[in-house]
Every structure is written in structure tokens, then in C-alpha cells.
Design a protein around this nucleic acid. Structure first.
Lengths: 131, 131
DNA sequence: CTTATATACGACAAAATTTATCGTATATAA
DNA sequence: TTATATACGATAAATTTTGTCGTATATAAG
């Protein structure tokens, strides 16, 4: 439990790689083969980061991805939410279909834990964890 | 991602229930039926909490579980680790079988995130989140 | 001492989620 | 025009989580 997914792991690896190669455009295939990541999985992940402008994409031959200016200031919370949706230890606060809401005795605890984690990740940037 | 498991959810519900019924011994069946939890799953979960002395068990007719003195001071980190093992967002720091260690470029980031989360959960007790 | 009830514990099946693959479309530099 | 790279959806495989079943053990009550 409380594990990140491979998607997020791959995204972190890619972001770090792009940060270390700031000048050039790096194609997905290069990152995938360097770290043993399935190409298609990584591609889809980087597409999400590109559409949120954490990284920039360029199509065509000699194309690829590069880190954007925004990347250093991106918080872990933003990063995770781009890839996986809202940060929460349970789904019940986004789903509406909980049958047991009336007898639920852990709303307060769950909310407190969620708030604590979001607060933590709102105050950690990609730059912070790289140093 | 970063979700708690049903086991942990059920354990939290049970702990809260026991805290609200401090005097009496509550059988698993009572908690399971009150909150719509599968009896056997909850039973196994409470057995772990009992063997770690977070709660106390009593066999036989009129037996059941009750909160221990230790319960209020139990940190979220201890609670989670009793139920699910070490707190970490990736398994690679406990498994030894990572093929890509030499090319791994996210050891520092992962360690920083792990440390931050453990620090957070070490400083939150079951009492803290219940208020 | 027998019986009913509760915890203790392991093996296995079902369900859900995550991870990976495949196919097709679009953009662009050479 | 061609080769190469991103973009995106559908589906299959693998893994993990969740739930079920069976059996053993302890103990209070009659």
C-alpha cells in the first residue's frame, strides 16, 4: 500500500533524465532503452506531462522531449495528479457510490491523513527531491 | 496510487469502534456486521493488531477485542507497518532483485519522498487523527 | 465434561487494478 | 516523398488485492 505506480516511477526517471540533458531533444526510445522501460508505456506517460506543460514535445525526425521552465517549480502533488488524478488514500471522497456513508466512522481520520499528505506534497517540488 | 488497502481501512474502522466502546469486549462479528465488512478479512486483520498489542483479545464465549492502553500512542507509521510492512512508495529498497540499480537515477528522489512520508506518519498518532 | 462461541491461522479462489502490447493517425525534417 | 517521432485508443497479460473456506484452539456456561 501507499505505493507509487510504474507510470509515476517511469515519469520520475524520465524527468530526471531530461533535467540532466537540458539542451537537447530526447526521444522516448532513448530513455526507454537506457532504463529498460517499455517504450509505449513511457510514451503515454510523457504525453500527459507534455499536455500539462511540465515537459515540451517536438514531433518529427530529430524530435523528442525536453524539460520546460516549469519543471523545477512543479510540486510533487501537481506531478502525481497529472499522472494519476487526485491525491487521496481512499477513493470514497471522489466516488459518490459509498453504501456505508451513514455508518462511516473514519471520515475525520481519513480527511486528516489526506490533508497531511497533500500538504506534504504541495511543499515539495521536483527540484527539492533531486538535490 | 498511494492508496491504503481495505485491510487498513477495516482496521481503522475497528480501532475507532473499539475506542468508542472501551469498557466491553467486542466480537469481530459485531464490527463486521455493523460496517458491512467481510468477517474473515476483518478477523485476520485484528489478529495482527492483537499480536502487536495495539488491541487485546479474549477467546471463548463473551470474548472479543478491546482497545489497549497502547492504542492512543500508536503512530500511523507503526499501525501501517504492523498491517502492511515497511512504509515506502517503492519496493526496491527491500527487495534485492532490481536489475537496473546501476542505471537508476531516482534513488535520491525516492529516498527523500520515503523519508518525508515516514517522518509525517511517525509524528501522527491514532489519537491525533481521531479528533 | 460437554457444548456453544469466539479467536487463530493457513490455503486457495475471485475480483480488481496495474502493466504491457498492438494498431492507427498525425506532424515534420531531410 | 520518405523516414522518424509524437499522439491516442483498444485490448491483453500480469500482478496485487480482496474474499472465502476449512480446521484448530481456548474458554465460559450449563
Amino acid at each position: 500500500m501507499l505505493k507509487i505506480t510504474k507510470k509515476v516511477e517511469y515519469a520520475l526517471i524520465a524527468v530526471r533524465h531530461l533535467q540532466e540533458n537540458k539542451d537537447k531533444l530526447v526521444p522516448v526510445a532513448e530513455i526507454a532503452s537506457s532504463y529498460g522501460i517499455p517504450r509505449e508505456v513511457l510514451a503515454k506517460t510523457l504525453q500527459k506531462l507534455a499536455s500539462s506543460n511540465v515537459i515540451e514535445s517536438c514531433k518529427g525526425p530529430a524530435g523528442g522531449y525536453k524539460a520546460s521552465d516549469k519543471i523545477e517549480k512543479t510540486t510533487l502533488n501537481d506531478f502525481f495528479e497529472i499522472l494519476e488524478g487526485p491525491t487521496a488514500i481512499m477513493d470514497c471522497y471522489f466516488d459518490s457510490g459509498c453504501d456505508h456513508l451513514s455508518s462511516c466512522n473514519i471520515r475525520t481520520p481519513i480527511n486528516k491523513i489526506n490533508d497531511s499528505i497533500r500538504n506534504l506534497f504541495d511543499n515539495l517540488t521536483l527540484a527539492d527531491i533531486s538535490q
